[in-house]
Each structure stands twice: as structure tokens, then as C-alpha cells.
Design a protein around this nucleic acid. Structure first.
Length: 273
DNA sequence: AGCTTCTCCTGCGAGC
DNA sequence: TGCTCGCAGGAGAAGC
């Protein structure tokens, strides 16, 4: 499941192949994913030059002079750069043909999205899907102090506040569990009951874990395929995620699995208070 | 406003 | 072998 590191690795993977290139064709093999594909996408993009790429949270951004293509990989999506005329496989839904290659999106579970934001609609940051996103965890402004300030009115468990994405973006289920372990915080703790010192540890843990994952080239998850077609899945060893009933790598106590908001949470009762 | 639950979808593994 | 069932999850939508 792509979390922030996988999206960033994907962006870095496709960028050198598409930036500065002219789009010659757009191929849509179904009417949409999570939402319908934009009408007239092909006429919007054909003949236009890709000026650059970016990322906001887990949204991948492809910039043109007259607008931005917003791509979300959902939880099973990936982008790959392939030779022209590569036969599409099951769940290959969308191609952007650029020069002698194509950028192809595959998304089995179809939770992904492709949207178009015309420059004339105002600043991209004000797009309805981007406007309420929290801070980028890898930017300098993200800190324990900010986490502390932003959680004073949040009584929900810290794990769910992290996943909500309105304070900090890009932290999905795996990295939320791992970050809370590294910071020694019980995932059930009400966010407003955590102090500055512990938030400082948490901010550092999030930054370290996401940064390391990007360096490694993405996640370890089954669905992710790197932009060059090799698996982006590194069997990194998690401390808690998906380790229910196995011994904690620090203290040896067995890792617990609970449900929070219909999502599995893994943690060590002894190391996380 | 914030919290919780529901929902979309397919692939996979367990159990029979 | 083939079936059914439960689970996985990002995040918007809806109800409170």
C-alpha cells in the first residue's frame, strides 16, 4: 500500500522519463477509478509539455502550463514507465504517452484517482482534496511543537489522529504503527494527553522512518512496483507491524494486535506507554 | 468541529 | 479442487 515514501519513490522514478516531454496521447481503459476520469482528458493533455512533477501528501502532481494532473495511487496502484505498444495487463487503466515511452497506471483495487486541476481554477493548494491536508512530515516546519499545538482539542487516539492526515500527511497504517513504537507511545493514548517531549520524539520518529523508507526505495508491501518495473518491495524488518504474537525486538514481550477504527494496530504493551 | 462508522474494490489465505 | 468467508487498506462521505 503506497504510503508517502512509495509515492515519493514513484515520483522520482517516473520524473526523469516524463519531465520536459510532450504528451502525445492519453489512453483510458475504463471510465474512472475512485472518481470518473476527467472529461476530455486527452484533448487537455495532448500536445502539452510536462513542466515538472511534485507531491503533496500521497498525491502525485504532474504539472503543465495550463493545469496539473493529480494522481493518487490508492492502496494498490503503481506507475511504470514502459515501451510503446506494451500489451496492457489486467487492471492497467490509464496511460500517458510521452515520446517513445508511456507511463502506465495499474490499480487492482481501484481506490486510486486521476484528476485534472486547470490553472484557471485557482491555486492548486486550494483544490478540494489538497486544501485540508496537514504538514509535510519531511519539511522543516514539521515538529513536535506543531504536533503538540495541533492536538490540544483532539481526544481521539493518537494513532487515528496520525492517520486522519489533517495534521501531518503521508503516515499510513504501517508507518503510524512503527513511528509510535519508535517513540514509545501507546497508540490508544488520547492525542491531547501527550506532552511536548513525547511529541518531539514522535515527530523525530516519523521523519526518520519515512526518510529511511524513501532511501530504501519504498516499502515493503506486496502491491508496490517501482517505476522502472522492479519490485519496490524490500523485506525490511518491522518492529511491530504485522507481527502479532511475535516477540518484541526490544523487550521480547509478544506484540499485540487491536482494532482502531476498523484498522489493525500493532504495538508492544511494555515498550509503548 | 471532531469523532466514528461505512464504503468503495480485488486478491489472497484459511477453513471446509 | 473449488467454494465461501474474512481481511487488507486510503480517505471521502455521512451521521452524530
Amino acid at each position: 500500500m503506497p504510503e508517502l515514501p512509495e509515492v515519493e519513490v514513484t515520483r522520482r522514478g517516473v520524473a526523469p522519463h516524463i519531465e520536459g516531454q510532450t504528451v502525445t496521447e492519453v489512453v483510458l481503459r475504463r471510465s474512472g477509478l475512485r472518481w470518473p476520469f476527467p472529461l476530455e482528458l486527452s484533448s487537455h493533455l495532448s500536445g502539452q509539455i510536462i513542466r515538472g512533477t511534485g507531491r503533496r501528501g500521497k498525491y502525485l502532481l504532474i504539472h503543465f502550463d495550463h493545469g496539473t494532473l493529480i494522481v493518487h495511487l490508492g492502496m494498490s496502484g503503481n506507475l511504470r514507465i514502459l515501451p510503446l505498444a506494451t500489451i496492457p495487463k489486467k487492471h492497467d487503466h490509464f496511460d500517458l504517452v510521452v515520446g517513445q515511452q508511456l507511463m502506465r497506471m495499474n490499480d487492482a483495487r481501484r481506490f486510486g484517482a486521476v484528476l485534472w486541476h486547470p490553472t484557471g481554477d485557482g491555486p492548486l493548494a486550494e483544490h478540494v482534496l489538497l486544501a485540508k491536508l496537514g504538514l509535510e512530515p519531511l519539511e522543516d516546519i514539521f515538529s513536535g511543537e506543531i504536533l503538540y499545538q495541533q492536538t490540544r482539542n483532539r481526544s481521539a487516539p493518537i494513532k487515528q489522529v496520525l492517520l486522519a492526515g489533517d495534521i501531518v500527511v503521508g503516515v499510513g497504517n504501517i508507518y503510524a504503527c512503527e513511528s509510535l513504537f519508535e517513540a514509545g507511545i501507546n497508540p490508544k493514548t488520547a492525542a491531547h494527553r501527550i506532552g511536548k517531549v513525547r511529541y518531539s520524539k514522535l515527530a523525530g520518529a516519523i521523519r526518520d522512518i519515512l526518510g529511511r523508507a524513501i532511501e530504501k526505495g519504498g516499502s515493503t508491501l506486496r502491491d508496490f512496483v517501482g517505476a522502472d518495473g522492479r519490485s519496490g518491495y524490500f523485506q525490511q524488518s518491522y518492529f511491530v507491524y504485522d507481527r502479532a504474537g511475535e516477540p518484541c525486538r526490544v523487550c521480547g514481550l509478544l506484540i499485540e494486535q487491536i482494532k482502531q477504527g476498523q484498522r489493525s494496530t500493532f504495538y508492544c504493551k511494555s515498550c509503548q506507554k
